[in-house]
């Protein structure tokens, strides 16, 4: 007997399709359209095929060189902040209280940086780290350590990495804390009876239980840091020189500074694909690790 198929269900999906079309697909197609054309203003466009893409992916060209430099900076930045925020977040989560009024207090304090708008975070650090009127900059300089994020690339990197750690370690810590809270007391009691050391408890109970939330934390932090724009833009504006110019900052310069819409569109598409690809790899590897255990 044939199953009757009710095509009427499509009607119910239609509103979502329309919204997604207008919010994502149509703008994305506009960008695709730009990326295969060139313009000299006056709203005149010329067909350029895959020209921009070829230039972009060839490091020997001007555009490609710029792109790869920014990409490496992005990767270095993501690597640094993950390398700091993940262990630090775990450490914070492990030392958080498990019961009593201090739980609520700690959670509120930890959540504070997450509630501050990104450009405000940038402004806070922009002032805080200034060597003339900023508390941090002034103190560090008076301790005899030369520190000036507007002139010295290393200082600039230290500033934006510290800022990101300050801003986002809480997120990792809160996620890990949620993972830790899901461990029943019996596990700790059993571990004590088994004579497990502090390290053995961490290694065999806490870390495995935090695996899933850590996967989410790494994914979120990677995507966010790879797409970072606002905070470094406010603090350093991509400088000194191009030393903190990330792909997103370069993209805005290209599109809104130079009005190279074609190049910028091609860059956007490639940037987007990289993020998608990296996230897919992360996700596959980590879920494989997860399921491979059973």
């Amino acid at each position: 007997m044939d199953k009757p198929v009710n095509q009427g269900a499509w009607l119910l999906v239609l509103p979502v399709l329309l919204i997604v079309a207008f919010s994502a697909i149509v703008p994305l197609m506009t960008v695709v359209n730009y990326s295969v054309q060139d313009t000299f203003g006056n709203n005149q466009f010329f067909w350029n095929g895959i020209g921009w893409y070829q230039e972009l992916l060839d490091p020997s060209t001007d555009l490609g060189g710029r792109f790869f430099d920014a990409l490496w900076r992005n990767l270095l930045f993501s690597f640094l902040i993950l390398a700091i925020e993940v262990p630090l977040g775990i450490a914070v989560a492990l030392s958080m209280p498990r019961q009593g009024w201090r739980v609520a207090a700690t959670l509120v304090v930890l959540a504070l940086p997450l509630l501050i708008p990104w450009n405000v975070v940038g402004t806070i650090w922009q002032i805080f780290a200034r060597e003339d009127i900023g508390l941090l900059g002034w103190v560090v300089n008076h301790l005899g350590i030369p520190y000036n994020y507007t002139a010295d690339p290393l200082s600039a990197w230290v500033t934006i990495v510290t800022m990101d750690v300050w801003h986002w370690t809480s997120l990792v810590a809160l996620l890990c804390y949620a993972g830790l809270r899901s461990i029943p007391d019996a596990f700790y009691q059993a571990a004590r009876i088994d004579g497990a050391s502090r390290w053995a408890i961490f290694r065999n109970i806490q870390l495995p239980k935090m695996r899933r939330v850590l996967l989410i934390a790494v994914l979120l932090r990677f995507m966010d840091s790879f797409m970072i724009y606002t905070e470094p833009f406010v603090v350093t504006g991509g400088g000194p020189g191009n030393s903190t110019t990330f792909v997103s900052i370069d993209l805005v310069k290209l599109a809104l500074g130079q009005f190279d819409l074609g190049k910028a569109a091609a860059l956007s598409i490639v940037y987007n694909l990289i993020i998608l690809a990296v996230c897919w790899v992360f996700y596959t590897v980590m879920t494989r690790m997860d399921s491979g255990r059973s």
């Binding site: 019996a186 059993a190 009876i193 290694r203 065999n204 495995p208 255990r293």
Partner: peptide, 12 residues
């Protein structure tokens, strides 16, 4: 030694 209500097994 003590055995608990919910089985405790080290997953890894």
């Amino acid at each position: 030694a003590q055995v608990f209500q919910f089985p405790v097994v080290y997953d890894t």
